[in-house]
Amino acid sequence: MIVADRKPIQEILEMVKDCKKVLIVGCKGCVTVCNVGGSKEVGVLAATLKIAFKKEEISIEMDEKTLERQCDPEYVDQLKDMVDDYDGIISMACGVGPQFLSAAYPEQRFFPAVNTTFFGGAVGHGIWEERCAGCGTCVIHYFDGMCPIARCSKSLLNGPCGGSADGKCEISKDLECIWDMIVRKKMEHGRIDDLLEMKPAKDWQTARDGGPRKSVREELANE
């Protein structure tokens, strides 16, 4: 899923300081699963903002709404009857949400309440880790189910580097060296010879280096 973190409250307050009526829109997709932008978090943000405005003796009206997803036009469309009732709209979806909303309702202002961070999963309750860098050419099968693009600090295809010590990456003692894990797993399973084959430089054109990406599935597309 896409993982995000809530922006600091002062940053959000600064965005909506001139608004008298605000709508907070959550998303039931990834940000609900990583507990940052679902209906529950929309409620918490609304309560926090109301407290902040009351403290400053500013009267503000705030409504809450959570869409099924903010990255599909049919759900974005559900705001059409209410979008003009507000001075500003806060989106708690990933970075896709405020952009889809802005495109659908160009007259309205949309403010992001979260910082979108990475593609990852929950490794424990309340703890998420990065697992995918969305490079566009998956190589996980070469590395026994571990992605060095996303999980090696240098995205090395032929590792580990000299910064690997006692299974940890040199950038942090809390970060596992993924190359240490790859080598150990290959040894355990008798496949260490796989690593004798050098991996050539990756073609990054399928990643962000090739510019913004687009996926067209002809069997599904209407046009």
């Binding site: 109301k50 405005f53 009351k54 403290k55 003796e57 500013i58 009267s59 503000i60 009206e61 705030m62």
Partner: peptide, 10 residues
């Protein structure tokens, strides 16, 4: 509480 300063509640 400082939030009770706002006479006209939201």
């Amino acid at each position: 509480s400082p939030i009770n300063n706002l006479k006209k509640a939201v």
